[in-house]
Write a protein that binds this DNA or RNA. Sequence first.
DNA 1: ATTTCATGTAACTTTTATAGTTACATGAAA
DNA 2: TTTCATGTAACTATAAAAGTTACATGAAAT
Lengths: 147, 147
Amino acid sequence: MKSNSQLSLALHLLLHMADMEEPVTSGLLASAMNTNPVVIRRLMGGLREHGIVQSRKGHHGGWTLSRPLAELTLRDVYLALGGGPLLSLTHRTQNPDCLIEQAVNETLDGAFRDAEALLLARFADLSLAALQSRIHAAIHSPAHLCA
Amino acid sequence: MKSNSQLSLALHLLLHMADMEEPVTSGLLASAMNTNPVVIRRLMGGLREHGIVQSRKGHHGGWTLSRPLAELTLRDVYLALGGGPLLSLTHRTQNPDCLIEQAVNETLDGAFRDAEALLLARFADLSLAALQSRIHAAIHSPAHLCA
DNA sequence: ATTTCATGTAACTTTTATAGTTACATGAAA
DNA sequence: TTTCATGTAACTATAAAAGTTACATGAAAT
Ligand code: FES
Ligand code: FES
């Protein structure tokens, strides 16, 4: 399948928004990310339902963070995006009666679970504030947004 | 994209072959796996190039293991299949100049590398012989092959 | 009020990775 | 020389993700 880059996109968006005073429109964010406003709105919609961002319609509307980055971890963002699959390997379930298939898949699942758990634990240890400070050390105009 | 189940399939095939005396045809394997012979031949072709299986054409031809399962780990099989991506998450590389994108992606990559390393290490610890003995404990007719 | 602008969303198209299919050439055993 | 199986190219199908179009809804500004 086509590989999933929503987490990368979401983080990029949130970090940009953190440096903005005013609400930012999906149009502006989209052109900075070289994508389409609807893609942004869809993704942000998910984050809004988890209390991460807020939106306002109409004039001077747009998107703002609804809690400080220090209270947000990569894990929160990943889960708010729906917590989709982390691994690209699946197992075949063509004939569930086959004992070999069962044994193979149980074994693989064990390894998969461990890798996923490790990744989630890593995500939980990374706050967006940490990312942000790393970025601010490198950038000197915080509110920059490629339009 | 459609998710990748080659490793699961390959393991299933190898374990079946281990219990067979005679070479097995791609046609037979395919019907046991509910798939197409060409899918089997393609996959096995990769394994042959890495010395895992052998093929013979013509009458009574087919596929046989070319080394004992005890010398094969899941890692070997995974690598012989091409060592494709393990994780379904990627990062977006729309504007490589953007420092935020860079920081986000470096951070993600760190976590991804660790998870992949863990998974590979797990794979390296699992020999096919171990899988096989687990299966033989459950099955009493080793050479069974759903056709 | 009415104009303006931005979100909210449904429906559709495009892209890309994987799997499955058809067709046939090649080669080895019987 | 017939039979059977691999080897491979070319094509189709399926599925997941991303991008696009179109328009309804709602809020600010004048
Ligand atoms: S778009 Fe991220 S810094 Fe320019
Ligand atoms: S196909 Fe695996 S045991 Fe029947």
